[in-house]
Amino acid sequence: MINPAEIIPGVVFYSYHSSVRKDKVAFLEHSTLVMQVSGRFSMETANETFSMEQGQMLLIRRNQLGEITKTPLNGEDYQTIVICLKEDLLRQIALEEKIEAGKKYSGPPNILIPGNDFLRAFFQSVLPYVRHSDETIANTVGLLKVREAVLLLLHALPEVKDFLFDFSEPYKIDLEKFMLSNFHFNIPVEKFAQLTGRSLAGFKRDFQKMFDTSPRHWLQEKRLTEARHLIEDKNKKPSAIYLDLGFESLSHFSHSFKKRFGKAPSEGLTVGS
Results as ranks from 00 to 15, higher is better:
107 G>I: 05
181 S>T: 12
82 V>W: 06
176 E>G: 10
56 Q>C: 02
208 Q>W: 15
203 F>P: 00
25 V>E: 09
201 A>T: 15
49 T>G: 11
254 S>I: 11
253 F>T: 00
265 P>C: 05
31 S>Y: 03
107 G>M: 04
189 V>F: 06
250 L>T: 08
244 D>W: 08
51 S>P: 09
75 G>M: 04
17 H>S: 10
1 M>E: 12
251 S>N: 13
149 A>F: 07
211 F>D: 01
104 K>V: 13
222 K>S: 04
130 V>L: 08
112 L>A: 13
17 H>M: 05
131 R>G: 10
245 L>M: 05
49 T>S: 14
249 S>M: 02
182 N>D: 00
96 E>W: 12
44 E>R: 09
31 S>N: 06
216 R>A: 11
251 S>W: 12
56 Q>R: 04
141 V>M: 08
33 L>D: 00
203 F>C: 01
256 S>W: 08
112 L>G: 11
46 A>H: 06
101 A>M: 11
244 D>F: 10
135 E>S: 15
206 D>Q: 05
82 V>F: 07
161 K>N: 10
16 Y>H: 11
8 I>N: 00
224 L>A: 03
102 G>T: 04
26 A>V: 07
250 L>F: 12
224 L>V: 05
261 F>S: 01
205 R>K: 14
242 Y>N: 01
14 Y>V: 01
95 L>S: 11
224 L>Q: 02
174 D>M: 07
147 R>N: 10
163 F>W: 03
173 I>P: 09
265 P>L: 02
40 R>F: 09
215 P>K: 03
110 N>Y: 09
160 V>Y: 04
138 A>H: 15
27 F>I: 09
127 L>W: 15
92 Q>M: 08
143 L>T: 10
160 V>N: 03
272 G>C: 05
141 V>R: 05
204 K>P: 02
113 I>V: 11
272 G>Q: 05
144 L>V: 12
224 L>E: 01
175 L>Q: 00
114 P>V: 03
206 D>R: 04
179 M>C: 12
13 F>T: 12
239 S>W: 10
186 N>E: 07
138 A>R: 15
68 I>R: 02
127 L>P: 09
247 F>N: 00
77 D>I: 10
97 E>F: 07
214 S>L: 05
98 K>D: 10
249 S>Y: 08
2 I>P: 12
104 K>S: 11
152 L>C: 06
273 S>T: 14
228 R>G: 02
31 S>D: 05
149 A>P: 02
77 D>R: 12
101 A>C: 13
258 K>N: 08
105 Y>H: 08
155 H>Q: 13
157 L>K: 06
92 Q>Y: 11
238 P>E: 03
224 L>R: 04
138 A>F: 15
203 F>M: 03
194 Q>A: 09
113 I>Q: 01
191 K>S: 07
21 R>Q: 08
40 R>E: 06
157 L>W: 05
26 A>R: 07
4 P>R: 02
116 N>D: 05
266 S>G: 09
120 R>A: 07
145 K>L: 06
162 D>T: 13
195 L>K: 03
161 K>L: 07
1 M>W: 12
68 I>N: 02
108 P>H: 10
105 Y>G: 03
18 S>K: 13
209 K>Q: 09
192 F>M: 07
270 T>Q: 11
220 Q>I: 09
164 L>Q: 01
38 S>A: 09
201 A>L: 14
